[in-house]
């Protein structure tokens, strides 16, 4: 049943390794970008608030495929922006990370904002009363607690992100979904095995993430 895997024709682990890398880099990128967006959305500067709100609502409601394909179409093929990569596979990989960060950042932002809402307003007011600036209140008082409260929603975002990396196959990043397309084309007699194999592969990636972060969420939660 799995004999097509022994032919040496497919690099299954390699493909899932690219998926894991995509997920990891995008996760780091979107955590940074999402935090920046959240900071903008709670900042006292109206212009930044407007930008944050508009960006989040615009990108969050655009299908991911459109975002990713737009990166390939608009940036690479039309404007020639390749993010310093030479080969097509690298271009696809980097542009996919860009698209995933732009998209997932909005969800990180909203998860963080929900975390910020768990911090009693009195704390921010107390900080201001002590003479702390907005940045100080945010980074020293509010965000550390917000992150601890937002672990569970952030874990959801991370799991969704891991699965969303499959969309990167649309612009030629050599990850798991692309290999699956190869297999579907060649192994017409084992389609369900192929699907099951990839479903299993993604569970191997996401289940431990979910379990670990669920445990971490309990440990880190601020007891009030």
């Amino acid at each position: 049943m799995f004999d097509f895997l022994d032919s040496g024709q497919y690099d299954l682990l390699g493909a899932f390794w690219v998926t894991a890398q995509l997920a990891l880099y995008s996760a780091i990128g979107s955590l940074i970008w999402g935090t920046a967006l959240a900071a903008m959305r709670v900042s006292p500067v109206p212009l930044m608030r407007t930008f944050g709100t508009t960006y989040v609502n615009l990108v969050r409601n655009t299908p991911l495929t459109v975002v990713i394909v737009a990166c390939s179409f608009g940036l690479d093929q039309t404007l020639g922006i390749t993010l310093g990569a030479d080969s097509s596979e690298d271009i696809g990989f980097r542009l996919a990370i860009l698209g995933l960060v732009a998209y997932t950042g909005t969800f990180v932002c909203e998860a963080l904002r929900s975390g910020i809402n768990t911090v009693p307003t009195g704390q921010a007011e107390a900080g201001r009363a002590l003479g702390l600036s907005f940045t100080q209140v945010l980074t020293l008082v509010v965000l550390p607690q917000a992150f601890r409260a937002a672990v569970t929603p952030l874990a959801n975002v991370l799991i969704a992100l891991t699965k969303n990396t499959t969309v990167a196959a649309a612009i030629g990043a050599a990850e798991a979904a692309l290999l699956m397309k190869d297999m579907i084309e060649n192994e017409a007699d084992a389609l369900f095995v192929v699907f099951a194999l990839f479903a299993f592969g993604f569970m191997v990636l996401t289940l431990p993430t979910g379990l670990f972060l669920g445990w971490a969420a309990k440990r880190l939660a601020v007891k009030r």
Partner: peptide, 20 residues
Amino acid sequence: ADLRQLGGYSECLTGLENKS
């Protein structure tokens, strides 16, 4: 060869036209 794999032929045609 540097092989670009995209979702559909029309997407490749855009790249061909723009010389990417």
